[in-house]
Nucleic acid binder design. Structure first.
Length: 357
RNA sequence: GGGUGUGUCGCAUAGUGGCAAUUGCUCCUGACUGUAAAUCAGGCGUCCUACGGACUUCGCAGGUUCGAGUCCUGCCGCACCCA
């Protein structure tokens, strides 16, 4: 297997980013339980926000009045917005009553109040310009991997058609908003095709013809058994031109990320470190995880990870953290999120320094 | 001393005679991958040749009954009321 680790610098209006890097998901414009200081102390800079969630709440009027998402969040570092395609589609795939996908657009009911909304490829781009992010993603059609090949092929065609419309709208917005080449946000296409390499290849080629700054791995990268689709993820990277960014959306576990870096993927985002942290599962340096809620930690007065220099491990014991989880103390979630994100940041730092060698 | 009521798996609660027994909490374990997720799922009498089976359970001791957590008697504990 060819090792294809890469090192690139992305320049944005809110600072430079060195690849490969990991972005925590601040989906709704915040990291649950964590504040700006927590994140900056860990070394978090780029983060992902979500078009769909922010559009529904607090709504674009508020974000516009706040002069964009950076000001709203008071986050001076780079932000990437996901288009919301994945969210709307998984909503509809889980419950067809929640909406309808047409070639023109996607229509859905807000799970919050049932109100009807429409997002077209053009609208998704407009919203992301209104957010004022540094990197944006086209609206795509991510079907479940379990769908028959014909349906996946249909989703690939729609993804390509929508990518074209997104690119046209993107150019239009640049002109309308008088954004110069050096200040423009980066835009990413998303490669669909499920488990089918031929579809992935075709989708990638068509997207490259349209031309984006980077390309993402779309839909789920694990099969129905939850097993990492190694070959598909590896081969898909090779369908993306060397000089373009490769964004492994939603990946993943530390193990999967390390594999993907080896395949040539540059960018990652995933809810795992924060969500699992909030649920009490902590990453430790031997590559394993512990569930701090387990009874065996009740009287364990050692740190979560003796090799970790995060706020949690420097100050508190497993016993104490478990106690806070048992008591449902919100501080437990914050400390666990800090620890897990620090673990991810350290992992990426280590990967980058290994690339240097 | 008299009266009334009550005693169920850690706690709290269901339970017309067919029940290994309800529900909540606690507790134990697991899941979590572009966040409908401070969420969700499973377990919680013992044992086994384990989508089934065996045995032991509802304060204690007897009794009635094919069959008792459920009915009867006595005892013990607890609660309240009257002296």
């Amino acid at each position: 297997m060819k090792e294809d680790k890469r090192k690139k610098i992305i320049k944005t209006m809110h600072g430079e980013i060195q690849t490969p890097f990991f972005m925590p998901d601040a989906t709704r414009g915040f990291m649950r339980s964590m504040d700006k200081n927590d994140l900056e102390q860990i070394g978090v800079e780029p983060m992902v926000v979500n078009t769909y969630h922010l559009y529904l709440q607090p709504g674009m009027e508020t974000i516009k009045k706040a002069s964009g998402i950076h000001k709203f969040m008071n986050w001076p570092h780079p932000l990437l917005s996901d288009s919301g395609g994945y969210q709307v589609f998984s909503l509809i795939h889980k419950n067809p009553k929640m909406g309808k996908i047409t070639d023109k657009e996607v229509i859905f009911h807000s799970p919050l109040d049932g109100s009807i909304h429409k997002i077209s490829p053009e609208y998704a781009i407009q919203i992301q310009f209104d957010l004022g992010v540094d990197m944006m993603v086209v609206l795509d059609d991510p079907p479940p991997n379990s769908y028959p090949k014909e349906k996946i092929a249909k989703a690939v065609d729609r993804t390509i058609a929508w990518a074209k419309r997104c690119k046209v709208e993107y150019e239009k917005q640049l002109e309308k908003r008088k954004i110069s080449e050096k200040d423009r946000p980066l835009i990413f296409g998303v490669i669909q095709g499920g488990e089918h390499l031929d579809l992935r290849k075709y989708c990638a080629e068509e997207l490259v013809k349209i031309g984006f700054d980077g390309y993402g791995f779309g839909a789920r990268h694990v099969d129905s058994d939850g097993k990492f689709m190694e070959e598909v993820v590896r081969e898909t990277a090779s369908f993306i031109p060397e000089d373009s960014l490769r964004f492994a959306l939603g990946i993943g576990t530390p193990e999967d990320i390390m594999k993907c870096v080896g395949y040539g993927w540059d960018m990652f985002d995933c809810v795992i470190p924060t969500r699992e942290g909030r649920h009490g599962r902590l990453f430790i340096s031997d590559g394993k995880t512990i569930n701090i809620n387990n009874g065996k930690f009740k009287d364990d007065f050692s740190p979560v990870d003796s090799k970790c220099d995060c706020m949690l491990c420097q100050n508190h014991t497993r016993s104490y953290l478990r106690h806070m989880f048992q008591m449902k103390e919100p501080l437990a979630m914050r400390l666990a999120s800090i620890h897990n994100l620090k673990f991810y940041m350290d992992l990426m730092e280590k990967i980058r320094s290994d690339v240097d060698k």
